[in-house]
Amino acid sequence: MRPLTDEETKTMFEKLSKYIGENIKLLIERPDGTYCFRLHNDRVYYISEKILKLATNISRDKLISIGTCFGKFTKTQLFRLAITALDFLAPYAKFKVWVKPGGEQSFLYGNHIMKSGLGRITENTAQYQGVVVYSMADVPLGFGVAAKTTQECRRVDPMAIVVFHQADIGDYIRNEDVLT
């Protein structure tokens, strides 16, 4: 376990800012205590200082997970967000997509969101903007990337892909063994 280097922090923030913009600041400066990002086994964990200090008692090879996993660095030093980060992305999300009950299941099985499954979308969403996906009952389901702008969404046919799937809460079952 170690703090992120400047480069790693930058890579991660760039990815996070696609979803929550400058709200990252709220993750760093929290009124309820000190929280920090730590790298362990190529994964980035968001941990409170208190838990971090407790975790130092556990040897490196025995430590599987700690705090909340935000994602992992690939071997080529790219950052991939994990579904476990959803709890922190959802409240601060800048661009949201609501999925109709009909399209919910398809999304939770790891498919992209079609226009037919789209309930609502935040206005002004640009193409390839990171979006957080909600059910119509405002339950966060996952996140993805907008394939079309809001304007284009209105014009495309119902089978066109509107949001590219990136992660959804179905991952908890599908990727149970690799999620930490």
């Binding site: 109709k100 789209l118 309930g119 609502r120 979308i121 935040t122 206005e123 119509m136 809001t150 969404c153």
Partner: peptide, 8 residues
């Protein structure tokens, strides 16, 4: 016409 694109 609503604020959120598609009023659902």
């Amino acid at each position: 016409s609503g604020k959120e694109g598609f009023s659902g």
